[in-house]
Amino acid sequence: MLINQLAHRSGVSTRALRHYDQLGLLSSRRLDNGYRDFADCAVEEVRRIRLLLDIGLGLQAVAQVLPCFTPDGELTACPTARERLRRQISELDGSIAELQRTRGLLAGALDNLIDS
């Protein structure tokens, strides 16, 4: 399928698809006219990429975790996926702690406002 067809079927822009292809996250072949041609399974591949991006992984981490998916689209418990997802949770915990600290500072500042 052509890139515009993949974009329509996956809901992802052609620009993003080109980027994923250039990074090796998607595979395509070039037609004689230079157009990218994607296999039907590319829709599922894009879904996997978007899932990993949606949970906060960067593209480099996505490239590391993608091989951990089974052919039917399930993420396996491979060591790479386990380690990367644990690291992502740890990073989120750090962000949550920082946000809670900032919220406390804001609430304290609000409590200390002087009415004028």
Rank of each mutant, 00 (worst) to 15 (best):
R9I: 02
Y20A: 11
E45F: 00
A107S: 14
V65D: 04
H8R: 15
T102L: 14
D21I: 03
A61N: 06
G11L: 09
A63M: 04
A39F: 01
I114C: 02
L59C: 05
V65M: 04
T80Q: 13
D93V: 01
A16G: 00
C68W: 02
G34W: 00
R18N: 10
R84E: 09
S27W: 13
V62R: 04
S27T: 15
G24I: 12
E91D: 15
R82K: 12
G94Q: 15
I114M: 00
L110W: 08
F69Q: 04
L106E: 00
A97S: 10
E45Q: 15
L66F: 04
Q22W: 01
L17M: 10
G108M: 00
Q88I: 02
A63C: 04
A39D: 15
T14P: 04
N33G: 09
L99N: 12
A7D: 10
G73T: 09
G34V: 00
G104N: 06
D115N: 08
S13V: 08
Q64M: 07
D40C: 01
Q88M: 08
I89T: 11
L105W: 11
V46M: 04
T14F: 01
E44W: 07
V43Q: 10
E44V: 09
I3W: 09
S13D: 10
D32I: 08
V62C: 07
E45G: 12
R18Q: 13
D40S: 08
N33D: 13
L26Q: 09
L31E: 14
R82F: 00
R18V: 10
A61R: 06
D72C: 05
S27I: 11
L52N: 00
D54T: 08
Q64E: 15
R82L: 12
D21S: 12
R30D: 05
L31R: 15
D111I: 12
D93L: 12
A81C: 03
S95K: 13
A39Q: 13
N4M: 06
L99K: 13
A107R: 14
V62K: 02
H8C: 01
I96L: 14
L66A: 05
R18W: 09
I49S: 03
H8G: 05
G108T: 06
I89S: 05
Y20W: 05
R36E: 11
L85F: 02
R48P: 01
R84H: 02
L17C: 08
A81G: 02
R82I: 14
E91A: 15
E91N: 13
G94T: 11
V62M: 05
H19Y: 10
S27P: 00
V65N: 04
